[in-house]
Amino acid sequence: MKIMPCPLNGPRNISEFTFGGEVTPLPDVASAPDSEWAEHTFYSYNGTGVAREWWYHVPSGYWFVAERHRVTDEILRTYDPSELPADALNNQQEAFQ
């Protein structure tokens, strides 16, 4: 069983975690065309390279970010979401105003 290094809890069996999808910015809620929204909802990148992913440690209820190599499956780095660069999310804060 693979080991996932959790930034809060340390190395743990991957069975303690659930996968939350890639860290992707949201399209613009108000103006993005339907096709862009559908793309965002249903398609994932299927290439090589390093993926930046959401992971959730179930017993402690903790979300964090893992950078994983898509070919070797090696987990290169995990960190608290507060360390994500600002442009990684596009949370549409302005949409809520």
Binding site: V29, A32, D34, W37, A38, Q92, A95, F96
Partner: peptide
């Protein structure tokens, strides 16, 4: 509302 979880998909 400008947003709720799933809003765009519900609209579509």
């Amino acid at each position: 509302k400008p947003y709720f979880n799933g809003k765009r998909a519900v609209d579509i």
